[in-house]
Structure formats: C-alpha cells, structure tokens
Amino acid sequence: MNEFLGFLVNGLSLGAIYALIALGFVMIFKATSVMNFAHGSIVLLGAYVVGRTHDEVGFWWAALLGILAAAAAAALVDLIVLRHARGADLGTLAILTIGVDTLLSTELTREMGTAILDAGAPWGTSTVHLGGTSVPLSRLVAALVAVVVVAVLWAVFRFTHWGVRMRAAAEDGTTAALMGIRLGRVAAGAWAIAGVLAALAGVFLTSFPSPGISPAAGVTALAAVPAWVLGGFDSFPGAVVGGLVIGVVTALSAGYQEHLLFLGRDLAQVAPYAVMFLVLLVRPSGLFGSKEFARV
C-alpha cells in the first residue's frame, strides 16, 4: 500500500509539470486554433538559457532570463512565421510549427552537444517525506507553482480587459475583430504567455530527479501532448486534470513495470497514449473540451 501511495504522490507531482506544459498548448489553441508542436523546443530553450546563465547571474535571474527568452521566441514564432500564413488551413499551420520545432531543437542540440547542463535550482536534490514516501522537493514546488499559475490565469481571463478580448476572440474571432479587438495582439500575447509557461515547466522538468538539461528535455516535454488532448484542446481545467492523470499513469506504469512485462518494456512511454486513445473513443473532444474545437 505504501508503495502504491508513493507512486501516486510522485505521479501527481510529475503531473503538475505536465499541466504547466499542457496549459501552454491550450493557451495557443484557444487564441489561434493552432496546434503548436514547437512547444517542446520552447521548453528546451527556456531551460537551456537557465542552464547557461545561472553560474554568472544566479538562479533566480537566470530563471527570469529563461522566461523572457522563451516568451520572446514563442511570440516571434507567431509574428514571423504563422502570421504570414494565417489564411492557411489548420493542418498547414500545425506542420509549420513542426518545422519550427525541428529547426530550433536542432540548433539547441548543436549548441549543447553531448553536455548535460545543471539547472542550478536552489532545491537541488532535496526530498520531502510524505506518508512513508520520498518526493523530490522540485516536484512539490512545481505543484505549488502550477496551482498559482492556474489561479493567476483564471483571474486574468475573468477580470482583465485582455482576458475579455481573449475570450471574445476564442468565441468568435470575426465578430471580435468587427468590435475593434486586434486579433494579432491577442494571438501574440497568448504565444508569449505560453512561452512563459514553457520556461517554468522546463526548469522543473530538468531539475532532480532528472539528470539535468539535455536535448532530450524537448522530447520529454511532448509527453504532455496526451495530457492536453485528454483534457480537451481548449480547456484550462482540462489541461490540469489531464496533466495529473497522465502523470499518475506514467508513474504507475514505471513503478509496476516489472509486474507488467507481458505488455512489453518501456510501458511508461506508451501508457499515456493508450489512456488518451481510450478516452477519445468515448469523448472525441476530450474530458472538458468544446465539441466545436474537436471537429476542426
């Protein structure tokens, strides 16, 4: 029983990181209907900047630089690449983001080589004992940050003028534009915020128990795609629930791997997609997604 609780707690804490990444996917899809497959390389970029600069400026300033770099890169993807192809179909736009991901991840891989960078996080390898199990402090901090981020996003969308414009653009872009809302600014803001979320997730994704910052972090970040799809393409609560579900599934699959060898090795990598597939068979729009978005 203690073993199961340990896997569960660790899965929930991992799910908080996936939720941060999935929130970025939702932010962009809700504002522009674009499936942003460049998000993984933006996560890697934010973490890379932190890893390269923390020795000179300290972790907190490095984290700020990583957030700014990821936000700027994400906004530039919208301004330079996607805005000039806005009239294209959604499949073409998604392919463009795959191209951006390939270019950015290739350049970051060239810069990093085979080195594994230390994120320099102040929590180091510290763990916290909860209910007879040890949980990395980084995962608990990630869970706390995820809660704060969700609360802030809710407040922004509920009480700010930008949030109202964002909701209007997501509901009916044509009418919003006729009412004077600049859809381009809304889209650029959404991409920038998604970049901020990507950088935050990157810091925690590459902290202990991860070995550090390497090109593999970008691929690992894409493990949040099942969380995004499972929760619903355009649902912020769905991103959180999906992240927690996928985190638990991943942790349990890895923890009980030896008892499930008849299903094959590397089950933890396959199980999230299997769960996503089963849920979509019953609810094609995800657990909380809008049916209109699911049909696009």
Rank of each mutant, 00 (worst) to 15 (best):
L45C: 01
L45Y: 13
L45H: 01
G46I: 07
A47T: 01
A47I: 03
Y48K: 13
Y48A: 01
Y48D: 08
Y48F: 15
V49E: 03
V49H: 06
V50Y: 14
V50C: 11
V50N: 15
G51N: 11
R52T: 02
R52K: 14
T53S: 14
T53M: 07
H54W: 14
H54K: 07
H54D: 13
E56N: 10
E56G: 05
E56F: 14
V57N: 02
V57M: 07
G58N: 01
F59D: 03
W60K: 05
W60R: 11
W60E: 02
W61T: 00
W61M: 04
W61P: 01
A63N: 03
A63V: 15
A63C: 06
L64C: 12
L65F: 08
L65R: 08
L65G: 09
G66W: 10
I67Y: 10
A69Q: 03
A69K: 06
A69F: 01
A70F: 03
A71L: 00
A72M: 14
A74T: 14
A74I: 02
A75F: 12
L76C: 06
V77P: 10
V77Y: 13
D78R: 06
D78H: 15
D78Y: 11
D78V: 04
D78I: 08
I80T: 11
V81H: 13
L82V: 08
L82P: 09
L82I: 05
L82M: 15
L82K: 07
L82A: 03
R83M: 07
R83L: 04
H84S: 13
A85M: 10
A85N: 06
A85S: 09
A85W: 15
R86P: 06
R86D: 09
R86K: 09
G87W: 02
G87R: 10
G87Y: 04
A88Q: 05
D89T: 06
D89P: 02
L90R: 13
L90E: 15
L90T: 10
L90P: 05
L90F: 15
G91Y: 09
T92P: 09
L93K: 09
A94W: 09
I95K: 05
I95A: 01
I95D: 03
I95F: 15
L96Q: 02
T97M: 02
T97Q: 15
I98G: 00
I98A: 07
G99P: 10
G99E: 00
V100K: 02
V100W: 00
T102P: 00
T102M: 05
T102E: 02
L104H: 09
L104K: 01
